[in-house]
Design a protein around this nucleic acid. Sequence first.
DNA 1: GCTGTAACGCAACTTGGAGTTGCAATGGAT
DNA 2: ATCCATTGCAACTCCAAGTTGCGTTACAGC
Lengths: 201, 201
Amino acid sequence: MDSESHRPRQVGRGAKVRDAVHAATLAELVEKGYAALTVEGVALRAGVHKTTLYRRWADRESLVADALADLSAMDVPIPDTGSIESDLRELARSLVRMMTAPKGRALLAAMFSGAADVPGVAEARRQVFDDRFRRAEPVVARAVERGELPEGTDPSELLKALAAPVYFRLLVTGDPVDEITAERAALLALAAARAGALRRR
Amino acid sequence: MDSESHRPRQVGRGAKVRDAVHAATLAELVEKGYAALTVEGVALRAGVHKTTLYRRWADRESLVADALADLSAMDVPIPDTGSIESDLRELARSLVRMMTAPKGRALLAAMFSGAADVPGVAEARRQVFDDRFRRAEPVVARAVERGELPEGTDPSELLKALAAPVYFRLLVTGDPVDEITAERAALLALAAARAGALRRR
DNA sequence: GCTGTAACGCAACTTGGAGTTGCAATGGAT
DNA sequence: ATCCATTGCAACTCCAAGTTGCGTTACAGC
């Protein structure tokens, strides 16, 4: 607890180094992936000596985990526009924005280049997926109540149908992901839901 | 060229070793991923000495690439049942079968744990995705001609909509992927296409 | 502006897996 | 039974991870 009170000194240098290292780690993740990320490479890019990294972070995994730590800063509010169409569009757009931002791209790079089971990365994944999905489910529930979607529409299935095309392009094909992708994903999920293809089993 | 004629001897031992090493490589890929795959680990599992691997394969990358080489054996015929619904169902089912089979799981593990840019792996990916997608496009074209789908439906978009939920579960969530997944993916893609959400822009 | 101390730079380690080499042992085809 | 390609084995080099001891720098407080 209160780490501020008994170590009030030397915050300037430390903070600068930490930020530089975080930025360097994210950049290396995006450029080379986790497998090819070396501690010396990060140190060099951050303009810092290797030993300094090992004094502040336990190992390579901690380094990456910490750089990805506060994904909560990227967390977006859940829309409630009164229309399922614009709600879904908004959800898709913020997903695209998140995953094309540097931190999102670094998270993807980490998760899909060998760091999937690193504790910190797995936690970041949970934060971005599970939590976000759970928080978005009321959007679907409200649409069902308003009669915009068929009774029995599965919120989880609909949200997965919304996100799947975006991730498919990000991970499998390598097609550009932009607002048009979000738009089409929203329309696709909406059409399927209206047709009753996303009902609870 | 004719490698059979001037090296007719010693095929028995070599073939046995090759098969054992291939199997061991695929197993290690699935269990640990590419990043954590060690040559000594493969050698140990295959019951073979490390040096033997380095004499038959140039390096770790070649080892993995060769183990994944003949994905053509997994290639499935393109359905033409006369109905887009059963065609899509069949496509989704064979996709699920392919990706839950040992070789498919190993391919996924290789592609998404650090070996994405290894030449042989990239080629296998191309073979499984691009080629297969291109070959499946006539299925959609025929359905449009039959009037089952709206004019202007984009074959590529429809096939991506079909595959996306499957890969989403395989790669992002870790939900089980089975016939039900295939069924739902087919219904989802079909509903979206019928609603005109997958038209060419 | 001076000083004390925490944080940093530096060099020299150990460890472990990739990849190599020379030589001895083995086993299948003839 | 013999031959020789293939395999087993041990002893290497190389590189990045991670560690340690000590000298150096730069900020906080006075």
